[in-house]
Amino acid sequence: MTSVLYDAPGPVTRRRERIGSVVGAVVVLALAFLALRYAAGRGVFQADHWDVLHNPPKGQSAADVWRSILVRGLGATLRAAAVAAPLALVLGLVLALWRTTRLRWLRVPAVAVVEVFRGLPVLLMMLVGTLALGMDPFGGVVFGLVVYNMAIFAEILRAGLAALPKGQAEAASAIGLSRWQSLRHVLLPQAVRMMLPSLVAQLVVLLKDSSLGFIVSYPELLKAIQNNGQYFGNRYFVALFVVGAGTYLAVNLSLSAFARWLSRRTGARAGAVGDPAGLALVASRPSRRRATRARP
């Protein structure tokens, strides 16, 4: 497991570790039990806190509740992500290619765009969309997601291109391919394949960031949860939250697992899955290590 720090344990150490592990587990379980008992004491587990999921009050049907959460709420979340992701990918690709231009001064705008937009909060860009550019909430959410993620995608692709062995470009031009041809047929396919795990991991970030739509009043998953809670009564917030958080975790963890699987398949280092976190600010140094290591 963590062989860097420890020798392979002998029988005595193994026993000691097992005992410690059991003690740790008991402590953790005891804490969890106390927390659950406290929650139960507040009535959180009583049926009337959960019936919104199967037999909601106010004459609504359970199907309506689930439809409002999973179809309309999650649907809106996925719609924003589905519109933003391809746009961001295309623009990111354009920016990444732009940065490969040989003339230094021609590169400047692309560099500036990438550096500026990945240094800004997504929420700010969404507000720029809705308040300054007069878009509707959906437009604002998509705008914010696209502008931020295109910068990140551009960085990822650039890192991928930079990490290719120099011989690839040299060989391509040696057989007479033009710059564009060598990019299209030789360099990009390799770079994209190498960076595929990071690209998929960035999709997790994008999906997570779509929840910022909650703040700019885009009716996505969290908003649907909140609306249901406010309509049926505050006591249902726990049940509804469990559904909302569970949905996010299910979608994001499967995307993360997909990214990890991809990175294993493409032979990149394990744990190379980028950043399911949205904390991404890739440093701008081209290196293989940077290219494959998990970003913060």
Binding site: Y38, A39, R42, V44, H49, V204, K208, D209, S211, L212, F214, I215, L222, I225, Q226, G229, N234, R235, F237, V238, F241, G244, A245, Y248, L249, N252, L253, S256, P276, A277, G278
Partner: peptide, 21 residues
Amino acid sequence: VLRNTPLTLVFFFMVLVAPQF
């Protein structure tokens, strides 16, 4: 879990769900 949770959801929990506890 935290890495795969949107930050907004964490805020949401603190502001709207924690009072239920």
